[in-house]
Amino acid sequence: MSSNIIDHKLFKIEGRAAQFSAETLEKVKSIIARYPQGRQKSALLPVLHIAQEELGGYLSVDVMNYVASILSIQPIEVYEVATFYTQYYLDKVGKYVIEVCRTGPCAICGGEDITDYLSAKLNIKDGETTPDGVFTLRTVECLGACGYAPVMQINTEFYEFLTKEKIDTIIDDLRLKANTDKPKESKWVEKF
């Protein structure tokens, strides 16, 4: 039991250099400034999004501790948030994270077949990453696009009215792009 606790990922300090660039840090400070004095913790969700995007694609303990130090809060306050919200990844993910909707409205429009097809095509199960580190497959709950079912999201992009043929094109395209695409872009400035 106790060894399990020690093995938990929240105890694994990787010693990865986790630090925003000077430019990003300025932006982070401007986000913190939106909230009243003493309420800098409010910036936690937005800053975790940025951290995940710019510091390796997932939230390792090192990254979370760094975010805690920037916001002057305890690391545990970051962990409890990072483990609550599904968009924060605590494990390494592929370059393209495929999130397929599994909820009712998509399911009755063929969404379950789409999930099966993706899983077979990529030869991975829900939650897994391909050995080459290109794709992670996850099923998620309603993406708020039910009229365009079946729906999936890959990184920030939505793909709608999915068919097996469309999946083939999308996946094949991304496989080609995986070699040339830069690592995750940091376009968050536009987003907030």
């Binding site: 409010s42 919200y85 924060y88 987003k191």
Partner: peptide
Amino acid sequence: HSGAGAYICGEETALLESLEGK
């Protein structure tokens, strides 16, 4: 302010907690 994937944050008081960084 961007959420991060949690249906419950649509409930108004959960939303306020979330907005406070919790």
